[in-house]
Amino acid sequence: MTLAHPLRFAVALVVAALLALLYGRLGRGKTANDLAYSNLAFFVAAVKPRLWVPRALQVAWIIALVSLALALGGLHVTAPVPVRDGAVFICIDTSGSMAAGDVAPTRAAAALAAARAFIDESAPGTRIGLISFSSGASMVQALSSDHAAVDAALAAIPPPNGATAIGDALRLAASALPPIGHRLIVLITDGVNNTGVDPQQVAEWLGTQHIPVYTVGIGTANGGAIPGSSDEATIDEDALQSYARVSGGAYARAQNATELHDALARLGRVTAFERKPVDASAGLAATGIVLLIATFLAGFGTGRLV
């Protein structure tokens, strides 16, 4: 929370405090509207009047004054707001290990289905691009707000084959993202970086540019056999967590197709909102005025009748 005009706020607070003091002093004085009664203890015990109502109105009155003071002070709060200029690159691993069947039907097919869920959950207007990487990285779909087109482009993702160049994919995504706005990268991979540039360095640089990398690791704990090879598909979770941490993103592990689908769907919703400083003055001023009118009207026409 920050105040654009702290001096105005301080003055408004002092004025509000003086008003409250004056109100309290006037409230203690006798008025013609007061009813003098023989024994208040008897009245309270017999009638059980609603004592909370005037207390609630007093609290509302104080909230109204503080709201108006904060409005005059130009209060800004950091709050989640809908993203209007979001840009996301989904980087999908197409290395040979993605052919493993430990995540049904295969890791590659599950990744594509999850990417589709991500696209479906993304906020309308969010620009989404696709990058596939194995021994190198290639742009499958440039940033586009036409989610149907991006969805269709998933069909162009090549089949699993080759090494794993995570750093290259991150660098390509970074170069294709706009220089400002709400930007992020979703990295779906099952393997260990074994070629290309160092992804740790790229992730650190992305962190300085406020581009978070959300990493999703695919694969069961036991790993999976790579078809046509004697190698076992493994996963470097520590590295994936590190890329996410240094860039300001988050890591998720998916050991089956459902977990993968849910993780990507959650990330899709992340693109819908971003935390930004918001000017709360108008809302506070409206709240204060409404409460002041409400507290005034609550006491209007009531009191002693004769």
Partner: peptide, 19 residues
């Protein structure tokens, strides 16, 4: 003779605000 938000003063001291 009271209705709504009222204030009563005890003849022997005290004040009460109530609905």
């Amino acid at each position: 003779p009271l209705f709504g938000l009222v204030r009563m003063r005890g003849a022997e001291g005290g004040m009460l605000r109530a609905y």
